[in-house]
Design a protein around this nucleic acid. Structure first.
Lengths: 130, 130
DNA sequence: GACAAATGATACTAACATGGTATCATATAA
DNA sequence: TTATATGATACCATGTTAGTATCATTTGTC
């Protein structure tokens, strides 16, 4: 049961760093400070840019910059970007094979637990992590 | 974020079935009722037998039978058997690279959330699922 | 005892997700 | 014009999960 993958973790680290240095920062700087493989970091930043969480600037003096204040970046959003939907996996539930009531009860309980997790995650933002 | 894998799901289904039919049941019967691939089901049942949750009986008329009352089988235990330790994955945290305080705060928060999940899972047993 | 019917043990393969690399295209400041 | 940065994309590596195949062992029944 892994709540956070590397993708997400790196993204959060980068966002924390960018929150403390509110100007444009290059991939190189991030890589040096955070010790993350450069091409991997690039991919992550590009994705965050596509999602409008970062802005990017090409050419000399370019790099990445927060496009949203840290208090408005919630980690649930980052998790969704890099890990997909947070919730029931549902691969074996969606087929409706459910032969006994047992699984449905289980489904409900697991669902409740996950809702709980999501609720807690929704309250954590980058500002709270710095 | 997948809370329960197929292994665990199948195991829980089998345990529910065995809870309702408290006598010896063959793999064939379980496979027919639950629609799970036979060799896969076998492997799961053998594991549950090793863990002393099921008893097994060889030869004609043999099969598997609950070795523990349903109220004493908690799904957190089944998850641990098939999914390993339920808790912080920690692969990127254990290295203590943690360059900024941000990650430690995150770590604490994630930890709290997971403790919460475990607490809820610890309360669900097979009897509650039937 | 022979045989069929069951599980025990174990090694193997397949599919998928994650983590990470490589490369070429494009924009831009100097 | 050139160096420096990101954009886009295709690829590879590794690990985990899901599932298969095979042979050994035990046991009830004739």
């Amino acid at each position: 049961m892994k709540l956070i993958t590397r993708n997400t973790d790196y993204a959060l680290q980068a966002l924390c760093y960018l929150s403390k240095h509110r100007e444009v920062v290059t991939v190189d700087e991030l890589v040096k400070k955070l010790g993350v493989p450069r091409p991997f970091m690039r991919k992550i930043l590009q994705r965050l840019n596509k999602e409008r969480i970062l802005g990017s600037y090409k050419g000399q003096g370019g790099g990445f910059k927060l496009a949203v204040p840290p208090a408005k970046i919630f980690i649930i959003k980052i998790m969704r970007i890099f890990q997909g939907k947070v919730g029931l996996n549902g691969c074996f539930l969606k087929k409706d094979i459910c032969p006994n009531k047992g699984r449905c009860v289980l489904r409900k309980k697991i669902h409740a637990i996950e809702n709980n997790v999501v609720k807690q995650l929704r309250e954590i933002n980058i500002a709270a992590l710095i």
